[in-house]
Amino acid sequence: MFDVPPPYQGVRGLAAYQEVWPPFFAWQAQGACFEIEELEITAGEDAAFAFALLRCGTEEELADRPEVRLRLTLGLRKEEGRWVVAHEHHSFPHDPETDRPKTAPRP
Rank of each mutant, 00 (worst) to 15 (best):
C33I: 13
Q28T: 00
E19F: 02
P22E: 02
P7C: 05
A43V: 08
A26V: 03
A26Y: 01
G10Y: 03
V20H: 00
V11N: 09
A29Q: 15
G44P: 01
L14F: 13
V20A: 04
G44L: 01
F34K: 01
Y8D: 10
G31I: 04
G10F: 02
A15D: 15
C33D: 11
W27G: 03
P7D: 00
P5L: 09
M1G: 11
A15Q: 14
V11Y: 05
A32N: 04
A16S: 13
A32C: 06
E37K: 13
Q18T: 02
E37T: 05
P5K: 09
F24M: 10
G31M: 12
L39D: 12
V11H: 07
I36C: 11
P5Y: 12
E37S: 08
W27V: 03
Y17S: 11
A43D: 06
V20I: 15
V4A: 07
A29F: 01
V11M: 10
A16Y: 08
E19V: 04
L14K: 13
Q28F: 13
E19L: 10
V11Q: 07
Y17H: 11
F2M: 11
W27R: 10
L14W: 12
G31A: 11
L39P: 00
A15E: 15
I41A: 07
I36A: 09
I36R: 13
G10H: 04
Q18Y: 02
W21S: 03
V11T: 15
I41D: 02
M1V: 11
A26K: 04
E19R: 15
W27T: 04
E37R: 14
W21D: 01
P5N: 12
Q28P: 01
V11G: 06
C33Y: 01
V11K: 07
Q9K: 04
F34Q: 03
A29E: 13
P22V: 03
C33P: 00
I36H: 04
P23Q: 05
E40Q: 14
P5T: 03
